[in-house]
Design a protein around this nucleic acid. Structure first.
Lengths: 144, 144
DNA sequence: CTGCATCCGTTACGATACTG
DNA sequence: CAGTATCGTAACGGATGCAG
């Protein structure tokens, strides 16, 4: 059944310093933010420095404000570098870091698995009744 | 360097129906929500049905409102089952589904990798200057 | 015991206008 | 070009009170 070894995981957790524990949470939180992964993917896919407006074109639906914020946070987190060229008109280039790249590599199998299992999700969602009238005796709770 | 194969990824994306594409995004969005992963981990670790208040005890810092919301969303998404027992006092039990369990299994390596690399994140964050005065010629932008 | 309803402050997000 | 400033809206999240 390929379960997660929670005992080991907890042991690992307890070996972390409080600061490190906090940091791990922060990292998880950061990559969970709305545009973060999308922006990172765009930069990783490009594989080369990208200007602000190029990124904006490729992250469909993002506002200038949110893009700025997301990129700055990624920079703080060491996942993206930001380079300002002292020119007129201004040029700013963003590039994914080694750390960011590796993080995406870790995340990729999750995405692949999700895509490969969309249909199971579809089924699961279709079978959702939506009321509180679950019957405990019909276990796979489809159609009470 | 173990990169992500973006070409293949894009090809996979385009083979998805618009509905499926939307669903994948929804799934990603859902698991990115603040308490989702934590709640799922607690249920998975327990490995057996848990009552509302037991879950609440183990998800440190969550409010009742947020826990209710999170659990309901997980139920909708097919990641958690909710069973109401028609008793007095009321009893409601939550349990992770097969799909939810598998999703966590997929996510676990990411967490392991993050923990194993905390120190790199620490270094990256420590080296962040925080102003816009990046010098493009001193690449690893520590101390302009 | 579960968990909904309400209030209320904080944060997130988008649109628009403006600056170096 | 790459933002910042400002505004308005919407979602989030905690605390409290209450119902079944």
């Amino acid at each position: 059944m390929n379960q997660v070894d929670w005992e080991t995981a907890n042991a690992i957790c307890e070996r972390l310093s409080p600061e490190q524990d906090l940091l791990v949470r922060e990292i998880v939180t950061q990559i969970s933010e709305k545009w973060t992964l999308w922006v990172m993917s765009v930069l990783a896919e490009a594989g080369e420095p990208m200007r602000f407006s190029r990124v904006m074109e490729r992250v469909e639906g993002i506002s200038q404000k949110s893009l700025t914020k997301t990129l700055r946070q990624l920079e703080k987190g060491g996942l993206v570098t930001r380079m300002v060229f002292p020119e007129v008109p201004p040029r700013v280039e963003y590039r994914i870091t080694q750390l960011g790249e590796e993080l995406l590599v870790q995340l990729h199998p999750v995405w692949l698995w999700t895509v490969a299992n969309v249909e199971r999700f579809e089924v699961a969602r279709a079978g959702y009744a939506g009321d509180g009238r679950t019957n405990p005796w019909t276990q796979p709770r489809v159609a009470v």
